[in-house]
Design a protein around this nucleic acid. Structure first.
Lengths: 161, 161
DNA sequence: CTATAATCGGATAAAAATGTCCTCTAAAGA
DNA sequence: TCTTTAGAGGACATTTTTATCCGATTATAG
């Protein structure tokens, strides 16, 4: 994977949040992680960082929880990654030959450049809203698959009779 | 960066090796890291792994050292990465929505697929020979830059006279 | 005001990655 | 054979990442 575990949690957490809570309504951590494999306590730390970075708003006490600081379609993966890891460092030479940059490129740098650029574009244009809808699509499939499995099980039981 | 520090050392180490030693002649670690920022002892460990993976051959004792197990143009970055990290895991969903794969893609998966493919192609087609020549190009530049700096310094001194 | 409910934030632990050192082993040359 | 020289490999140290826990803080409801 191209992200760290922490960054991945941030991305998944925001995607869940956008998918589960309606706009301008906050959701509690316990509700957000329910049914996911997201680690509650660790995600809490990650969300604290996202609050400080201005991607999330939080509220303590009863009725508290987290909500997006701006619309889901205005938060990109790039925003998330940079909130966690700091400025994206994709500009370094892909193969670790330092002192390579756009001013002083090496052949590898030029070859890798188009890939880097596409990655950057992807990160800069894909938003939390996109991710949330991807999540929903995935969840829908999951159900279909489970149903199919149940159906097969049923047929199998009948056949045995 | 998209590689771990360890993998990056492996890549840089092999590039240096291919650049410094003529074919079918081994080079010692101490010579290989001279003038680089590669950490000698840690690289030794990394090279041990590459020997076991079949990318390098090693020889103990006098006249010993390391050499490529096959021609530089037949060792790809992919080979190196897989020797260190195991099979490349780029196939996972880019945004960590698990249960996504080519059979069961989600929208993000499809969007990210072309980027992933290009990355894979790059890793599978770029060889140690390419990296070595990139290194040499870079080193040539480095010299030019240093010369320019020295020249300027000289002019500056003259001007002051 | 009090009890409850939520995040915040510090402390700490566990695990993984990275880095260092030292002895063992194998090979070559005197 | 003996000495020197190289990597091999084990032990250990350090740092970073990931994970967990708990009291403090803040807000709400009654």
């Amino acid at each position: 994977m191209i992200f760290t575990t922490t960054t991945e949690y941030a991305i998944r957490g925001l995607a869940e949040l956008a998918g589960r809570s309606s706009d301008s309504k906050s959701i509690m951590l316990d509700d957000l992680v329910a049914g996911t494999t997201l680690p509650r306590d660790f995600l809490a730390k990650v969300f604290q960082r996202l609050v400080k970075a201005g991607l999330l708003k939080s509220a303590k006490g009863r009725g508290g929880g987290f909500m997006l600081a701006r619309p889901a379609h205005e938060i990109t993966i790039k925003d998330i990654v940079e909130s966690i890891d700091g400025p994206i460092h994709l500009d370094r030479c892909a193969v670790g030959l330092d002192k390579c940059n756009d001013h002083q490129p090496c052949p590898q740098h030029d070859l890798y450049q188009p890939i880097r650029q596409r990655l950057k574009d992807y990160l800069a244009t894909t938003t939390v809203a996109d991710l949330a809808s991807s999540l929903k699509t995935k969840q829908a499939w999951q159900k279909i698959i489970e149903n199919n499995a149940a159906e097969k099980e049923k047929q199998h039981a009948n056949g045995k009779h």
